[in-house]
Simulated scan of single mutants.
Amino acid sequence: MKQFWSFIIIVLLASCNSATENKTVESSLEESKIIEEKPKLHVDTLSFVAYNDDGDYFLLYAKKNKEDFSFINDKNDDRSFLKGDVIEVIWKNDTIYIAGDGETPELAEWVVSTRKIKDGTVSAFRKHYKKELKYNWSKEFEYSQGYLDQLYLVVEYYIANSQNQLIKEAVESKEQIEYSIEEQIRNNKEYTVIGIATVSEHKVSTIQWLYYQHGDALELYEYDLPNDELIKFE
Rank of each mutant, 00 (worst) to 15 (best):
V111C: 06
K116Y: 10
E21P: 00
S18K: 08
L133R: 09
L151P: 08
F4C: 04
K2D: 07
Y212S: 04
V154P: 04
T24K: 15
G84N: 06
Y129W: 12
T121A: 11
W5N: 05
Y158R: 01
E222S: 13
Y51T: 02
T206R: 14
E229C: 06
K63A: 05
E219A: 15
A19N: 01
S205I: 14
N52L: 04
N227P: 10
N188S: 04
E172L: 14
D94R: 02
N227V: 03
V25C: 10
I117Y: 03
F233D: 08
D85E: 05
A19Y: 05
W5G: 02
E183T: 12
V155D: 01
G215Y: 05
K38M: 14
P226N: 12
Y158F: 11
E132Q: 14
D78V: 12
K75P: 02
I159H: 01
D56W: 08
T24D: 13
Y157H: 13
Y211S: 04
L13Q: 08
P39G: 09
T121W: 04
F7I: 09
L59N: 14
L133Y: 10
V193L: 05
E175L: 15
E21H: 06
N227M: 07
W91S: 12
I96R: 14
K64C: 11
F48K: 00
V112N: 01
S173T: 15
K203H: 09
E172D: 12
T24Q: 14
S162H: 01
L46R: 07
I207S: 03
K232P: 03
A217S: 15
Y223K: 02
R186H: 08
L225D: 15
Q163K: 12
K75V: 07
G100F: 02
V155N: 03
S144W: 03
I10H: 09
Q163A: 08
V89I: 15
N187Y: 11
T104C: 11
L225I: 15
V89T: 02
H214S: 14
S6A: 08
G195Y: 09
G215K: 06
L148F: 13
I98Y: 08
P105W: 06
E36L: 08
I87P: 00
I177D: 01
S180K: 07
A217W: 06
E234T: 13
R115D: 12
I185Y: 05
N73F: 15
G100E: 04
I117P: 04
L230Y: 11
N136V: 10
S162C: 07
I167M: 12
V171D: 05
N136S: 15
P39Y: 06
I194M: 05
E178H: 15
E36K: 13
N17D: 11
N161Y: 00
W110D: 03
G55T: 09
E106M: 15
H42M: 00
W110Q: 11
I72E: 00
R79E: 01
F7C: 03
H42P: 01
D101K: 13
S113G: 05
Q145G: 11
A99Q: 03
K63Y: 02
W137P: 03
A217L: 12
S180G: 13
A108E: 07
V86R: 15
D74M: 11
F233M: 07
Q150C: 10
E178I: 14
Q3W: 08
A197H: 08
E103V: 02
I181P: 07
E103R: 13
V111P: 00
D216N: 09
Y212A: 01
